[in-house]
Amino acid sequence: MSSTYSQQPACNRLVETDSDLVQLFLEGNRESLGVLVERYQRALYFLCLRIVQNHDDALELVQKTFLQVLEKLHTLQKTDKFKTWIYRIAINLCYNLLREKSLYLRVLSDLPVCTESTRDDPLAREEEELLVRNALSQLSPKQRISIILHIYHNLSYQEIGEILGCQEATVRSHFHLGIKKISNQLRKKIGSQHAM
């Protein structure tokens, strides 16, 4: 018998674009899905972690994201938009989880109080990081996602716009306003410490 029985589209993990891999998967090549998972799993993990701020949840969300991809890949009309599509799935899952856990509206009172040892000094580095993280979590979802995707994932404003469903200029504005809010919180905190 000739090779037809084992005929499967070949998958070259180094040169295939996302679009090629999606196409291969839709034609029945399961290995191409594995390549896509390898390609995106780290980025998605850090994205989810930065949104939900919980390691275990992030791991679970990455799995869920790929399971949704598996289920809905055939509905993806523009295969070249796979990247923004998968990010959108992950982000939606993150916010669903946050809603479920009622972490979505985290209040200012959650912010840690300065300890005696750091009160007279400029904010310690760890404390600054914590403050920034908390400030980030209080931003509107669009501001927060714009910052996370632009800074940590190097996505362009245009790509973020595709994920959030808005214009490039709007994303730029979300990004800037988000950073400004965080900066203001940092300033306020530093100001209040100097006043003490």
């Binding site: 290995e31 594995g34 390898e38």
Partner: peptide, 8 residues
């Protein structure tokens, strides 16, 4: 994970 998703 890749293997797990492929199995899935």
């Amino acid at each position: 994970l890749p293997q797990q998703i492929m199995e899935q």
